[in-house]
Amino acid sequence: MKNSVLLLAFLISFVCTSIGWANKPVGTTLRASGATSVVRLDNIFSQRKDDPVFWQDTIKTGAASRMEIRFSDNTMLYLGDHSSLQIDELVYQPNKPGKAFFTLSQGVFRMVSGALNKMDGSTFTLQTPLATIGIRGTDFWGHQTADKLTMALLDDGELRITSGKETIVLTNPLEAVVIEKGKNTVNVFTLTPEQVAQAKKTIE
Rank of each mutant, 00 (worst) to 15 (best):
V15P: 00
L153F: 06
D50E: 15
V196Y: 07
A22T: 00
S84Q: 13
G121N: 01
M67Q: 12
L154I: 10
E158N: 08
D120H: 07
P52G: 13
I135A: 01
V91K: 10
W55T: 15
L116D: 01
L159R: 07
L104N: 02
L126R: 03
T125D: 06
I59F: 03
I133F: 09
R70N: 11
L85C: 01
Y92N: 01
G142E: 09
D120N: 14
S113K: 01
D88R: 08
E158G: 00
V177W: 03
V53L: 15
R66Q: 14
I179L: 00
R31K: 13
E194P: 04
H143R: 15
L41T: 12
S33Q: 14
L7I: 13
F109L: 09
Q127P: 02
L104E: 04
T167H: 04
L41W: 13
V169M: 03
P94N: 01
M1R: 14
A197T: 14
K148Y: 05
H82R: 11
M67R: 05
R110D: 00
A32F: 03
A152D: 05
F14S: 11
D88P: 00
M76Y: 09
Q127V: 02
T36M: 02
V178Q: 11
Q106T: 09
E68G: 04
T138P: 00
T128V: 04
M1Y: 07
D147F: 05
T132V: 06
E204M: 12
R160C: 06
Q106A: 11
T192D: 05
A197V: 11
Y92A: 05
S4L: 10
S84N: 12
T185H: 15
Q144A: 04
G20E: 03
T58P: 02
D120K: 11
G80F: 05
M111C: 10
K200G: 01
E180P: 06
L30G: 13
F189L: 08
I179F: 02
D51C: 11
F102L: 12
L104H: 04
S4P: 02
G182W: 10
L11M: 12
P94S: 07
F140M: 10
V91P: 03
E194K: 14
K24Y: 05
D155I: 06
T123C: 02
Q47K: 13
K183I: 00
A197Q: 14
G164P: 03
L77P: 00
E175R: 11
N3K: 14
